[in-house]
Design a protein around this nucleic acid. Sequence first.
RNA 1: GCCCAGAUGAUGGAAUUGGUAGACAUGCUAGACUCAAAAUCUGGUGUCCGUAAGGAUGUGUGGGUUCGAGUCCCACUCUGGGUACCA
Length: 866
Amino acid sequence: MKEYDHKKIEKKWQKEWEDKGTYKTSDSNDTKKMYVLDMFPYPSGVGLHVGHPRGYIGSDVYARMKRMEGYNVLHPMGYDAFGLPAEQYALQHKIHPRKAVEENVKTFERQLSIIGLSYDWSRKVNTTDPKYYKWTQWIFLQIYNSWYDKTEDKARPISELENIFEKDGNGKVNAACSLDTEIFTMKDWEGFSMKEKQDILMKYRLAFEGYSEVNWCPEMGTVLANDEIINDKDGNPVSERGNFKVEKKSMRQWFMRITAYADRLISGLDELDWSSHIREIQKNWIGKSEGSEIEFKVVISSEVQPLGAFEVGPLKVFTTRADTIFGATYVVLAPEHPLVKKLESNIENLEEVNKYINSVKNKTDEDRTKNDKEKTGVELKGIKAVNPANGEEVPVWIADYVLATYGTGAVMAVPAHDERDFDFAKKYNLEIKQVVFKNDGIFRDPINIKSSTDDGILINSDKFNHISSEEARLKITEFVGGKIVTKYKMRDAIFARQRYWGEPIPLKYDKDGVIIPLEEKDLPLELPDVKSYESMGTGESPLAGVKSWVKEGYETNTMPGWAGSSWYFLRYMDPQNSKNFASRKNLDYWNQVDMYVGGQEHATGHLLYSRFWNNFLYDMGYVPNKEPFKKLINQGMILATDGRKMSKRWNNVINPDDIVSNYGADTLRVYEMFMGPFEQSLPWSTESIIGSRRFIDRVYRLQNKITENESSDDVVKSLHKTIKKVTEDIESFSFNTSISAMMIFMNEMDKAEGISKNDFKMFLQILAPFASHITEEIWHTLGEKESIHTSSWPKWDEKKIIDDEIKIAIQVNGKVRAEIMISKDIKEEEIKEIAFKNSNIITWTEGKDIKKVIYIPNRVMNIVVV
RNA sequence: GCCCAGAUGAUGGAAUUGGUAGACAUGCUAGACUCAAAAUCUGGUGUCCGUAAGGAUGUGUGGGUUCGAGUCCCACUCUGGGUACCA
């Protein structure tokens, strides 16, 4: 037997697999399919550290077992390469980002290839390839040309909306859109200009134009991502590069109306086999809450107007606790609320109010939302609001704990039943009036009664006594003329970047500003070369400086990083297709991803956007399934030896290349799977990895133990137990325990007289998903001609794993006092007899009353004595 | 603050989901082999008492349920992750 030379063996088989196409996937329809997917990486300039392959190895082990079980396995890999880091890398190194991406991809590919992952590389995708982003642009156009019909609860082509407008005006349309109401008649629609029609349709489109606040750096003339901003020593936001001041600026953007899908993104979670943890994160992120919008009258205070208050305007508040409205003792507006400006002439303490508003303006968002911040506010003197429930005049305040961006930017404050209002009321001595009590009628600290699911009795009202909070909420909303509305925390997603390195948005503007979407035959709209990747100084993307581009009227914003990653799993199904993003046949066959493996940091980004796009494509009939990822597993991070995240900054990065070169890819694979539970974050230990190498060394040496004879019964029994354990554990991603089971079996083989060739080969097969090179090598040494990785997964024989002798523990009062061997089918009475003859047991039971004896078959017998 | 996850030897972790806690591995330690070292092999290794047999104790803390609790219930402490005044 030759010495185990991991370098030689691994290189040899990696080449062989590639030459023979061992892992190539066919799109044939006659086998059961299995789509095992990794989240594709962003090829950054620094390459992989040992943490990255953890997920890839786990999914590889799973894919390899499924392949051996006879599934047609789709297990691809690709690159998500548009976005900020490549652009910054290009700026720094003065090279084209495409060049940077090419180099980085090369590094990644080399690093991935030496680990021996069973990808079908012929299906590789790269989001920056025009052949790929042609379809990203195409999907954008489908979304742009659609609106959301709430009645049918699905997306529909925008042309169908135009038809409705032409026939009926929009009186009947129940759509997700940016407007409250916009009733116009058929005649109006006919009379509208192209531009006017476009402006109306824009409010309905699922991809729409709008404005939003961005981080603007005047010195650099650039819009900055949150990642590019740090705080200076005074806590003010500054640019990471150059420490320049950053402020907010409103800019034109493209948006995706993901809020139209909010309900479906919540309800769809139920059919997914994801950890409850991730589902919870998404649910909270979407943040659905049902509440009431209620109008309060705003009046000039009756103290100022002795002849009676007169109304100066309505004020809409949003509340989830309309049942507590009888306890609303004041109203709070966000300092930015438009009503404040409108009422200026009526505010008696205007100077104080303006001072407060200015103090809030100077604060950053972070300041305003810092923990445990004491609440501040100012009363609008001379102004009162009228509680519509009881007609009482209540004071009006502005305070920065009310946000302009959520709900209506105004709240009715019920200090008895809301903690924030309570704090505020106590500080400023405002009235606290409890109106909801528990059913038992006992008075409690008001702050203890907050949940609207608590049954309560409402007092202070003859009309609404003795009903539950939930019932009261609906009835009172009706009583005060409010309406029930649903609100979400999630906002529509910004789908534009003022950057170079992204997919061009396939739209043109004519000279009147009318938008002309590109036709499919004109796609892809390729990204032109530019002289500089710096933005224009106006905040516009570098594309605004390309004469030919601007002359054609092309949109100068590019798509955000998440565009290409929101559908790549579909492209793998048919990566070379030039007529469609994937053929219907392949989409129907592969259907959806069966097993998706990746980090949980994408819970509120990628995993939500992908579900949104896939749901949309389903509505339009392009994909066969609403949900893209049936099962999701989140691998834990590998931390550095010091327990921190691996990062260049801490100088604690372990490079997989070094590990592969010193110990071999098989050792790395086995170790990363053995270190602990797959979903748990674990610190790397270069000290412990030697154990995995020893395991592989010993497996290699075990070849010497192969004999012509049959293995002993004990070895056969252990083998079948091990096959069972490993099969079940891989299925549940419990890789650490399956390796431990194989180590136990190996120790047994080592002690045994010998092992038959066939039994040893079965052991190699179950080890093959983990240590894929060395098992292949020994497999061939033993005379096999075909790859071990396409052989059939061994089956265990249930009959062979039955133990006929079992050790059980005898306890006295719950403490183990003896262990006895019994044969398999022995009766309880007989065991009792044996137990009571045992001298240890006699010592503990002699002279005592036996109260009872409990027997758990094949495990334990507990004798209870007094 | 709220939500989620977790806490087991020196270390990473295991425990058939209420049934012998510490599998497997690292480390440490003693021995074999060797001129020596490495590698390899064999034994030991939760803590305390004891020469030993054995006993006591032990899964973050305090209570509880049970014949029996790492596992279930209640209260708390700490650690990690998410989120940030969402009305």
